[in-house]
Design a binder for these strands. Structure first.
Ligand SMILES: [Mn+2]
Ligand SMILES: [Mn+2]
Ligand SMILES: [Zn+2]
Ligand SMILES: [Zn+2]
Lengths: 156, 156
DNA sequence: ATGATAACTGATCCTGAGTATCAAAACGGG
DNA sequence: CCCGTTTTGATACTCAGGATCAGTTATCAT
């Protein structure tokens, strides 16, 4: 697949994913998505702004933040909360999956699911990755918040 | 166990955990730990500052942040990166375990490990928790960063 | 095409969590 | 008690991210 065709395919996917939500496939959003896809590491908004401004001096800082939000919202990118209270981003297929993230260089590797107990050890070996800590947290609504929400919906 | 005895036990645990690292079990750190233990929800530094200042008007904002860092470092509390780039905290035993966190009210429930694939479903039922998204990410050093680190250590 | 409408951009300003600094205070071993 | 170390609280600061708004661009129905 030529670079040009690849670019076109990316643009089409961007269009379909975004237009489903009434959002537009702009040049800036495509630039951000392409930059994410070029990197095997998670990248911060500041990183991307600096990087993109080299070739596109007109792009705005706020636009980079907003583009990242849009891409995450459209399922084309994933947000990582990096220690130090900074968000980092990676281009990701929308299927649910998890990652190995290097705290040294931010390299990211996708992992497939398995028994969590043995997972860390297996993955360390397979990827040469020294796991220091893992996080497994499920976010959602507790019973009472869930009741409250459906109650409010019923009333509306 | 009377409240008084409980308090004393907390102070002793604080002392042993902190003094192992050359840190002191101060009144402020104990106040923060007790406030954390009183809550079934994750709490932000700002929450704690406001709450503690009611009874202890002299406590400093920076001290709350620093106390939380100390407690996390000593394994007496755990940090959660709440969406919106704010850290939240919960008192936690140091054994490795995971959580259900309500995005509505920040109520936190400890979960025991099991096959990750079935986990979310089982936990939803057991706790009446509607899981919206789960995060499983392992953080550590990739092979090349790991090599670089041990190389540096050898040189030191 | 053309105009109406809604979404988007970029410049600017603002917010607020968290940190650096530093002088004063509290600790804890001897 | 005494002295070096740690901690505290006040203050000033940083910096990621969001709000605002006037000007621009995409989409769609004529
Ligand atoms: Mn991925
Ligand atoms: Mn816990
Ligand atoms: Zn690395
Ligand atoms: Zn809840």
């Amino acid at each position: 697949m030529s670079p040009r065709r690849q670019n076109r395919a990316a643009a089409e996917e961007l269009t379909s994913r975004l237009s489903a939500r009434g959002r537009r496939p702009t040049a800036q959003r495509l630039l951000v998505l392409e930059a994410l896809r070029r990197s095997r590491r998670t990248v911060t908004a500041a990183d991307l702004f600096e990087q993109l401004r080299a070739d596109h001096p007109l792009i705005g800082r706020a636009t980079v933040f907003r583009s990242l939000d849009s891409l995450v919202d459209a399922g084309l990118a994933q947000r990582f909360e990096r220690a130090g209270h900074v968000s980092a981003y990676a281009a990701c297929s929308t299927e649910h999956h998890h990652h190995l993230v290097c705290t040294g260089c931010d390299t990211t590797v996708e992992i497939d699911e398995a028994s969590i107990a043995r997972l860390a050890g297996e993955l360390s070996q397979r990827h040469g990755f020294t796991v220091h800590h893992g996080t497994l947290d499920f976010y959602g609504l507790c019973a009472s918040c869930s009741d409250r929400a459906s109650g409010a919906q019923r009333r509306a």
